[in-house]
């Protein structure tokens, strides 16, 4: 490793910033992929992998990808929930890699809900 100048140091910081923000839980968008048994069976894993790649390629370092358990809607798996900071979560169902790509570029990047794939807007409440 050659000695750094200030610019090199800033480059390194940029590169590792995402990991740092993630550890602090700082984000502007959170995408949750539902990984219940049926979710996994319906192909949630490839969706997850594709999503991680899309986020990385976008260069956005303030998007968190996480998993949760069963969402209670086995017939519509794979599913994911997108939650922009300060906005209501939106659940998407019957996902494919193309669909998640579109959801990312429209909803996450531009803030436009992709209504054609959306199942629920807002979270179900406990009675």
């Amino acid at each position: 490793m050659p000695k750094l100048n200030i610019k090199d140091l800033e480059e390194i910081r940029k590169k590792v910033r995402k990991a740092a923000l993630l550890r602090e839980g700082i984000s502007n968008a959170k995408i949750t992929v539902h990984m219940g048994t049926c979710g996994i069976a319906a192909g949630a894993r490839p969706i997850m992998n594709a999503l991680i790649k899309i986020v990385e390629e976008s260069g956005r370092d303030d998007v968190i990808v996480t998993t949760s358990g069963c969402a209670g809607l086995c017939s519509r798996e794979p599913m994911a929930t997108v939650e922009l900071k300060g906005e209501t979560p939106v659940k998407y169902g019957d996902l494919t890699e193309d669909k998640i790509k579109k959801i990312f570029s429209e909803h996450v990047l531009k803030g436009k809900i992709v209504e054609e794939y959306a199942l629920v807007i807002g979270s179900e409440r406990e009675p």
């Binding site: 140091l9 390194i12 910081r13 590792v16 910033r17 990991a19 740092a20």
Partner: peptide, 11 residues
Amino acid sequence: IDDYIGRDGYN
């Protein structure tokens, strides 16, 4: 060291 740098280290 990169982890430290990522958290404002050496700024």
